[in-house]
């Protein structure tokens, strides 16, 4: 019998389809490449940076970009700007990604539990979350970091707490949507317990949208972290952090405007790349059946 008759073209899985659609989006692809470059830069900073980011030289303070040996100039203590910016990517990306990841775990757990159990559990969890959600995120981050005291760890905790409510909200609404779908009842009818249903059927359907939402928070987190450092509530000097550099170079605003804009440019490039990449990912995942 000719088996060809029944030949079906194996259509690719969900993520493969998303990946292909993503590759066809030039803007998102370019943004993703920039993000990839920044991550590589952060990882390999000690090997890429031409000079020691901590080594200052009071004779060469505030040199403009293009100075011999210092392609992007030097900062107010005579440290190489290029090296500091490269090293700064480490902290900035760390402060962008890690709080969001922590918040993703905690927020998704809260949201999924609330969404799946419904009723009183839902009300209790989500109203508590709403209390935090009511604060503007910048204000909450500053207040928390201020209360916890300066330092990177405290900044991290503050940012994590800021991002739990929005992620929990999204997780809850997606879970509520999935919970009432037929396949959850079908899973129940075939003997799956609540844990198995959450682990496989809810998580499998919910993680994508939550993850994409969390990605869009990375840029926000980075900017907030930079803001905290700028206010002296985050990373402490002499760590090369873009927000902190913006703060210390502020005094040179009138003498070397180009120089003191550089950390801001890095923050801008990174956050817009993350945003464009997330937008692309979201539209790639928005596959109508």
């Amino acid at each position: 019998m000719p088996e060809r008759v029944n030949e079906i073209i194996r259509s690719p899985g969900f993520w493969v389809t998303v990946w292909r659609r993503f590759l066809r989006d030039p803007v998102a692809l370019a943004a993703a490449l920039v993000v990839l470059g920044l991550i590589l830069m952060a990882v390999f900073a000690p090997w890429i940076a031409p000079q020691d980011p901590f080594q200052g030289m009071s004779l060469r303070r505030l040199k403009p970009p293009g100075t011999e040996g210092y392609p992007l100039g030097t900062d107010e203590l005579g440290r190489d700007m290029l090296s500091r910016l490269i090293h700064g990517a480490r902290i900035s990306l760390f402060m962008g990604i890690v709080p969001v990841l922590c918040a993703l775990f905690i927020g998704a757990a809260i949201g999924i539990v609330a969404g799946y159990s419904g009723g009183w559990t839902n009300t209790l969890l989500m109203r508590t979350v709403d209390v935090f959600f009511a604060f503007p995120s910048v204000l909450l981050a500053v207040a928390l970091a201020g209360a916890l005291g300066p330092g990177m760890t405290n900044g991290l905790i503050a940012l994590t707490l800021v991002f739990i409510p929005p992620i929990a909200r999204v997780a809850e609404s997606v879970t509520t949507g999935v919970r009432s779908r037929d396949f959850v009842e079908a899973a129940k009818a075939s003997g799956a317990g609540a844990l198995l249903i959450i682990r496989k059927h809810v998580l499998g359907n919910v993680l994508g949208p939550i993850f994409v939402y969390a990605m869009s928070l990375v840029a926000v987190s980075m900017i907030l972290a930079a803001g905290l450092s700028f206010l002296g509530l985050g990373v402490k000097p002499p760590q090369p952090d873009w927000g902190l550099m913006l703060n210390t170079l502020r005094t040179a605003m009138y003498t070397q405007p180009l120089l003191c804009a550089l950390p801001g440019v890095m923050i801008f490039i990174t956050s817009i790349s993350f945003n464009l990449m997330t937008d692309g990912l979201r539209s790639a995942m928005d596959i109508k059946a």
Binding site: R181, D182, F183, A187, S190, K200, G204, N205
Partner: peptide, 15 residues
């Protein structure tokens, strides 16, 4: 065990 009315909805789309 049970067979549902609308298999598209009763089967989990991600597995």
């Amino acid at each position: 065990s049970m067979i549902f009315q609308e298999p598209m909805l009763a089967l989990d789309p991600v597995y």
